[in-house]
Design a protein around this nucleic acid. Structure first.
Lengths: 117, 117
DNA sequence: TGACTACATACCCCTAAGGGCATATAGATC
DNA sequence: GATCTATATGCCCTTAGGGGTATGTAGTCA
């Protein structure tokens, strides 16, 4: 059942935070590190998990690997990402993540194009 | 994170089918058995899992244990149950479950009150 | 070419959890 | 009390997966 696989991707707190951030903007691994304040290996593994299940896509940009949600998403995924975004509004952890991300984005030393589009 | 715990409950296909049915009506274990066509022990264990995490409630009615969604639900749970219900509409497995349930409900030999309210 | 940066992966350990079989329990009925 | 029905639980096996340490790899820049 496809739906259960989506929820399997959603059922870890770190992955949930990653996916939530991706509903806002494509990001590279170092941004997740700075935003989530988790070890690189942990983030990298969860990203690999999500990638193997088609929940995220990557493209290289110089030294950075940019992660983003897939351009084409099933309606189930789309609905659940929207639901996640709505639920996240009232949760302090997700809010804090967004705040940290905003601070990153206001820095001037970011790789070009990461936050674009 | 409370939200991740909800998704942990959602991440197994059998539990997802159980929860989906419960968005329609309170049910006892034997109804799940007939609707899902899964072994009693499997259903019973998944119900115990959901109960231990507060996703379902029980009340006894004679020999039957009636399972239902909790009367008072967090907004996160409510939103995700709604999303599940919407997603389930397009999935043949969930549709088939609903069909079997409807057949059960049209039988005349059901315990009183199970489907009430 | 060599050093550096950003990221991935192999290996290890440990726990959660899913499934099945057998058995226990609780209420109903006789 | 004995039995039946409906449901729960203990035990066992197996796999998935989450976390950490160490190391590999790919692109960049001097």
């Amino acid at each position: 059942m496809k739906l259960a696989e989506i929820y399997q991707c959603f059922c870890d707190p770190t992955r949930l935070r990653i996916l939530h951030l991706l509903t806002r903007s494509p990001l590279c691994v170092c941004h997740f590190q700075q935003t989530l304040r988790e070890p690189q290996v942990k983030i990298s593994k969860h990203l690999a998990y999500l990638r193997s299940r088609g929940l995220v896509q990557t493209k290289r940009s110089g030294n950075w690997i940019i992660y983003s949600l897939p351009a084409k998403r099933s309606s189930e995924l789309e609905m659940n990402l929207t639901c996640l975004r709505d639920c996240a509004e009232s949760d302090p952890i997700f809010r804090k993540d967004l705040q940290r991300l905003a601070e990153l984005q206001s820095d001037c030393c970011q790789p070009a194009g990461v936050f674009a589009k």
